[in-house]
Amino acid sequence: MLRIGLFLLTNLAVLVLAGIIFNLFGFEGILAANGVDLNLSGLLTLCAVFGFGGAFVSLLLSKTIARMTTRTQVITQPGTADEQWLVDTVRELSQKAGIGMPDVGIFPMQQANAFATGWNRNSALVAVSAGLLQRFNRDEARAVIGHEIGHVANGDMVTLALVQGVVNTFVMFFARLVGFFVDRVILKNEQGLGIGYYVTSIIMDILFGFLAMMVVAWFSRRREYRADAAGAGLTSRESMAGALMRIKQESEAGREQPLPSNMKAFGIYGNMGALFASHPPLEDRILALQNR
């Protein structure tokens, strides 16, 4: 869940910044072509450039931001038995999944969690929390790692970036249509593009951006079932279901600690509102595995 949340929030920030740059550098002039007429095809093209650009900037920055936000320490030379086991397990499962060896890290959190991120399936980062290594048995921890490697092998981050690029394009496009409507129809401005247009379009970028996150979160929930299936294939169905059950038990016992707000959707599980949840309920995931 850590993986998706950070990507979404980074993307939203990039999207808002792109909207400001879109305004400041005069790209909005295309709207004023032919008086009050809108050059819709030209506007859509510009929005696609900025929309996909924002999504792929978020993707390219995902490893760096994830390391910084979670304070992940990448293991360059294993110093403990746990670190050696973790590196060996990631190497084994990566080879089995047919991907390049990811960077391996541990982040200092007592909550049992893990994430994988990166722009390339052969240049990823897989990290687990200190709490997971301390409390989960080897089969459970191995299944969690298999789940995260499943995300990498399935190319989920690239696919998510493509989906986000499409969503971004239409967020920026419709935000500017609303801005144009407010400026010309409500405020009755007939002298180019006024302040009403610029303020409204930026506000709409933020509002539509949050609504778009619901669409991306829905897509992410579908991908979680595939990652669970991949984890079960790399380890075993029993181990994957057992790991999810262990996470559920810890959650019910109140052992989890809240993740930073910008990381809540990046881990193997998390609690968010239903419309913004990047992961299905643990009960549904366990049931899906048991019915495979």
Rank of each mutant, 00 (worst) to 15 (best):
residue 3 R to W: 09
residue 3 R to M: 05
residue 8 L to R: 10
residue 8 L to C: 11
residue 11 N to H: 10
residue 12 L to D: 03
residue 14 V to L: 08
residue 16 V to T: 07
residue 17 L to C: 08
residue 17 L to F: 05
residue 18 A to F: 05
residue 18 A to M: 04
residue 18 A to E: 00
residue 19 G to F: 01
residue 22 F to H: 10
residue 22 F to G: 06
residue 24 L to C: 11
residue 26 G to E: 06
residue 28 E to N: 14
residue 37 D to S: 14
residue 39 N to D: 10
residue 43 L to H: 11
residue 44 L to Y: 05
residue 48 A to Q: 01
residue 50 F to S: 00
residue 51 G to H: 00
residue 56 F to D: 03
residue 59 L to V: 00
residue 65 I to P: 00
residue 70 T to V: 13
residue 72 T to Y: 13
residue 73 Q to H: 08
residue 73 Q to R: 07
residue 74 V to M: 03
residue 76 T to E: 13
residue 79 G to K: 10
residue 79 G to A: 12
residue 81 A to H: 06
residue 85 W to I: 12
residue 85 W to E: 08
residue 88 D to V: 13
residue 88 D to H: 12
residue 88 D to S: 15
residue 88 D to A: 14
residue 90 V to A: 00
residue 92 E to N: 11
residue 92 E to K: 13
residue 95 Q to E: 08
residue 98 G to Y: 09
residue 100 G to Y: 03
residue 101 M to L: 06
residue 102 P to R: 09
residue 102 P to Y: 06
residue 104 V to F: 03
residue 104 V to T: 07
residue 106 I to S: 08
residue 109 M to H: 14
residue 109 M to I: 08
residue 112 A to L: 14
residue 113 N to L: 02
residue 113 N to M: 09
residue 114 A to C: 00
residue 117 T to K: 12
residue 119 W to A: 15
residue 120 N to C: 03
residue 124 A to H: 02
residue 129 S to D: 09
residue 131 G to P: 03
residue 132 L to C: 08
residue 135 R to N: 10
residue 137 N to D: 14
residue 139 D to E: 13
residue 142 R to E: 05
residue 144 V to P: 08
residue 145 I to L: 02
residue 146 G to R: 13
residue 147 H to C: 06
residue 149 I to Q: 10
residue 150 G to F: 12
residue 151 H to T: 11
residue 151 H to W: 15
residue 151 H to C: 13
residue 153 A to M: 00
residue 158 V to E: 06
residue 159 T to K: 15
residue 160 L to G: 07
residue 165 G to P: 05
residue 166 V to Q: 06
residue 167 V to N: 14
residue 169 T to H: 01
residue 171 V to T: 01
residue 171 V to C: 00
residue 172 M to N: 04
residue 174 F to C: 00
residue 177 L to E: 03
residue 180 F to R: 10
residue 180 F to P: 01
residue 180 F to D: 11
residue 181 F to R: 03
residue 183 D to E: 07
residue 183 D to A: 09
residue 185 V to D: 10
residue 191 Q to M: 05
residue 192 G to E: 08
residue 193 L to F: 02
residue 197 Y to R: 01
residue 204 M to Q: 10
residue 204 M to N: 12
residue 206 I to L: 09
residue 209 G to E: 01
residue 215 V to Y: 15
residue 216 V to I: 15
residue 217 A to H: 06
residue 218 W to A: 15
residue 218 W to G: 14
residue 220 S to N: 00
residue 221 R to N: 11
residue 221 R to K: 12
residue 222 R to T: 04
residue 228 D to C: 04
residue 229 A to N: 07
residue 229 A to K: 00
residue 231 G to D: 03
residue 232 A to Y: 09
residue 234 L to T: 10
residue 235 T to E: 00
residue 237 R to T: 13
residue 240 M to Y: 01
residue 240 M to W: 04
residue 241 A to D: 10
residue 241 A to H: 05
residue 245 M to P: 01
residue 249 Q to C: 05
residue 250 E to C: 07
residue 251 S to E: 14
residue 251 S to A: 12
residue 254 G to F: 11
residue 254 G to C: 02
residue 257 Q to H: 12
residue 257 Q to L: 08
residue 259 L to A: 14
residue 261 S to F: 15
residue 264 K to D: 02
residue 266 F to M: 03
residue 267 G to C: 03
residue 267 G to S: 02
residue 271 N to S: 15
residue 271 N to Y: 13
residue 277 A to Q: 00
residue 280 P to M: 05
residue 285 R to I: 02
residue 288 A to W: 13
residue 289 L to V: 13
residue 290 Q to C: 08
residue 291 N to R: 13
